[in-house]
Design a protein around this nucleic acid. Structure first.
Lengths: 355, 355
DNA sequence: CGAATTACCGCAATCGATCTCCTTCGATTA
DNA sequence: TAATCGAAGGAGATCGATTGCGGTAATTCG
C-alpha cells in the first residue's frame, strides 16, 4: 500500500498524489483531482509512510525526551504535557530513561540521534557536560526541562522553585517555627542549588530564625529516611523541615513514624512537587505544587517553535509554583523534642524497630 | 555524515561499509578492511541513519505502546519493563496515551502505523473491537498487556488477578469478616470481570460469608469516594471491602475519613496493584501486588520473539500476584457500624463537611 | 489572432542504507 | 597449465515519498 497504488487508482502520477495529500501543496492541484485522490486513498486505507517521508524531507517529526526515571511521579505529567502539545502538531515523542547514568544517557542520546529526532527535550539537569556541550556545538535542537545545564545557553523551562521555597519558609515562620532545616538534594542538580539558595535567603530575612542545610545523597525515600534517622540519632532534629522533594519528605515521615514521633506535632514537614498521592499520605503533606504538565507543554512549544523557525533561542521560562497547605505542618509544640531523655529512649526503640 | 563519507575515508565502496558495520554481514568482509572501516566511522562520528535503514529493510525497530494514561501509577513500571527489554535488542518504544477515548485510540494507532512500528503492545483492554479486529485481520503484530481483548486471539500478559483476589478474600475471612463487598471496576474491562468472578468464587467457598458486588463507574479516586459515600448513605456498608484497584481504595479511605470513620477499625480495605505510594497512605494499604515491571518485560519479550520468528502465537502469560498485608485490614470490631444512630449522625457531619 | 501567462500535473532525481548480482584475483586441484 | 572455487568487495537497483524542472493546454492580454 504505497503512494503508487493510490496513483494508479486515481489515474494520476504519484507526484500528484503527494501534492494532493499534503496540506502545504494541495493548492498546486485541481480541487476535483484532489478529491479523486483523497477518495482513492481513503478507499485503499492508505497512510503515508513516515519513514520514507522522513528520509526525503530530512525530518522525522519526532522529538527525543530524555528523563531519569518514568516511575518518579514527577515526570509522567511532564511527558503528558509534552505529548499534549506535540500530537496536534504531528510530532511524536520518543522517551528514554537514563536513571541518571552517564553511559545510559550517552546511549539514549546516540540511539535517538540515529533515529534522527528533530530535537530533544532533556529533563536530566545533571546531564553530562561533555555530551550536552557536544550537542550544542553540533547545532542539535534542545530544550532543557525542569533542570538547566550550566555553560550551555539552551532554553530552559522550570518551575519557580525559589518562590516555592520562600513561600514554604514563610509559612513555617508564620506558624512559629524558629529552627528550620532544609534537606537539600544532591549538589550537582541545578535545582538543588536554586532551592538551597532560596531557603537561605528566606531564612536570612528573619533575624530570629535559624536555618540549617542538611545534604541528602539522593532524591529518594530511602535518602530521606536515612537523613532523618541521622538527625534524630545526633539529637539535632529541628521543629520543621523543608524537604528537597516529596520523596525525601515521605522518607522523613517514615523515619518519624519508625521512631514513634508524630508529624506535625513533633516535626512539621513540607515537601516539594505535589506528587499525585501526597494528599493521601499520613499525614496529608503540605507541599509546593509545581505545574509539571504545563512545564511539559511549554517545553514542547519552545522546541517546536524554534524548530519551525530554525533558530535556537535561549530564554528561560519560569512557571509559578504555589504552596499547598495540608496537614503536615502545624505550630511547634513547646518542648516537643526538648526532653533529651524520652528523646533518646524513642530513638533506641526506633532503631531497634528498624533492625 | 553518511555512509558515503565513511566509504571515501576508508577507501572502499559504501556497500562494504554497510557490511563491515553490520553484525550480521561482518563476516563477508576482510577483518583488516572491517577494522579500517570501523576506524573511519569512529573518527567521523558516524551513526547510521535509522530512517534510511528502515525504509530499505522495511522495519523501523520501534514498537508502539498504547496505554490509557501515563499518570496512572500502574503504567510507568510496565513501560519501564518494556523498555528494559527492548533497548538491548535495539528497539525503541513509541508511547501514546489515549485516556480511554475511542477517537484518540484510533488516532494513536494510525499515527504509529504511519511511523511503521514493527508491532504494538496495547494496555487498554477496552480497546475498540473494530480497531483491534482490523489490526488482527491485517496481520499487525500485537501483544495485549494487563487486559485482554475478547474475540481476537492476540497473546496476553497479565497478572494473576484471580489468585490475588482469592488471597485477599481469604485474608479477610481469616480476620473474622463475614460481610464483604467487592467494589468492582467497570464491566467493559476484562480485568474487572476476572476479579469479580474470583471474588464471588472465593466467597462461595465459605458458607457463612456474605459477599456483595458494588459496581464502580470508573477506576478513579473520585469513583471510590462516591461509591463509599453511597454505601454509607444507604447504611449498607460492609465490615471489609476488596477494591478493584488502589485508586478506588484511596477514594474509599477518603470517604471514610470525611465521615469520621476509621480504617481498619470501622472498615477494612484492600486495594489492588500496590502502587508505589500505598505504603505511605493513611493507613498504609493492604493490597495485592502485581508485578508490573515484569509484565512489561514479558510483553516485550513475547512481541520481539514473534517478530523475529514472524509468527503470531496466542499464549496467555499470567504472572503471580501476591497479597501485601499492611495496616488497612484488621479484625472487625463488634458493632463498629451497628449503631444506626451515631452512624446517621456521622454521615450527616460527613456530608456537611463535603459541601 | 498571436503571444504571454497561468494552472495543472508528469518526469525523474533524490534522500541514505541495504542487498542482489557480478567481477576480480589468488589459491587449490586435476 | 588450465579449470575451478571461494573470498572480497564493487556496481547499481531499490525502498516510498518529495520536489525542482519542464511540458501541455487553457486562459488572458495586447
Amino acid at each position: 500500500m504505497t503512494i503508487a497504488d493510490v496513483a494508479v487508482r486515481a489515474g494520476v502520477h504519484k507526484a500528484t498524489v503527494s501534492r494532493a495529500l499534503n496540506k502545504m501543496t494541495e493548492h498546486q492541484v485541481n480541487p476535483a483531482t484532489a478529491r479523486r485522490v483523497r477518495k482513492a486513498a481513503e478507499e485503499l486505507g492508505y497512510v503515508a509512510n513516515a519513514v520514507a517521508r522522513g528520509l526525503r524531507t530530512n525530518s522525522s517529526m519526532t522529538v527525543g525526551v530524555i528523563i531519569p526515571d518514568l516511575t518518579n511521579p514527577l515526570f509522567p505529567p511532564m511527558v503528558r504535557g509534552i505529548e499534549h502539545y506535540l500530537a496536534p502538531h504531528g510530532y511524536t515523542a520518543l522517551i528514554a530513561n537514563t536513571d541518571g547514568d552517564d553511559d545510559l544517557e550517552r546511549a539514549a542520546f546516540d540511539s535517538l540521534s540515529g533515529r534522527r529526532v528533530d530535537g530533544f527535550i532533556i529533563a536530566t539537569g545533571r546531564m553530562h557536560h561533555e555530551l550536552i556541550a557536544d550537542a550544542y556545538h553540533r547545532g542539535v535542537h534542545v530544550v532543557m526541562l525542569n533542570r538547566g545545564s550550566v555553560d550551555v545557553p539552551y532554553p530552559l523551562v522550570t518551575g519557580d522553585d525559589a518562590a516555592g521555597v520562600t513561600a514554604a519558609v514563610e509559612h513555617l515562620v508564620e506558624l512559629g517555627h524558629r529552627d528550620l532545616v532544609h534537606l537539600a538534594g544532591p549538589e550537582n542538580f541545578t535545582t538543588s542549588a536554586v532551592r538551597q539558595d532560596a531557603f537561605l535567603a528566606a531564612v536570612r530575612r528573619h533575624a530570629d530564625v535559624a536555618g540549617r542545610l542538611v545534604p541528602a545523597p539522593a532524591l529518594t525515600i530511602r535518602a530521606g529516611l536515612e537523613c532523618m534517622n541521622d538527625m534524630l540519632l545526633h539529637g539535632d532534629a529541628p521543629t520543621a523541615i523543608v524537604a528537597g522533594n516529596d520523596l525525601l519528605a515521605v522518607g522523613i515521615l517514615r523515619s518519624l513514624r519508625q521512631h514513634g514521633l508524630h508529624c506535625p506535632d513533633d516535626v512539621s514537614v513540607i515537601g516539594f512537587n505535589d506528587m499525585d498521592s501526597t494528599e493521601d499520605l499520613n499525614p496529608p503533606l503540605t507541599t509546593v505544587r509545581v505545574p509539571h504538565f504545563e512545564m511539559g507543554t511549554e517545553a514542547a512549544r519552545l522546541l517546536i517553535d524554534d524548530l519551525a523557525a530554525d533558530r535556537q533561542r535561549s530564554v528561560t521560562v519560569s512557571l509559578p509554583a504555589s504552596l499547598v497547605v495540608r496537614e503536615s505542618t502545624a505550630a511547634p509544640r513547646a518542648g516537643a523534642l526538648a526532653s533529651a531523655d524520652t528523646f533518646q529512649a524513642r530513638i533506641e526503640s526506633g532503631l531497634s524497630m528498624r533492625r
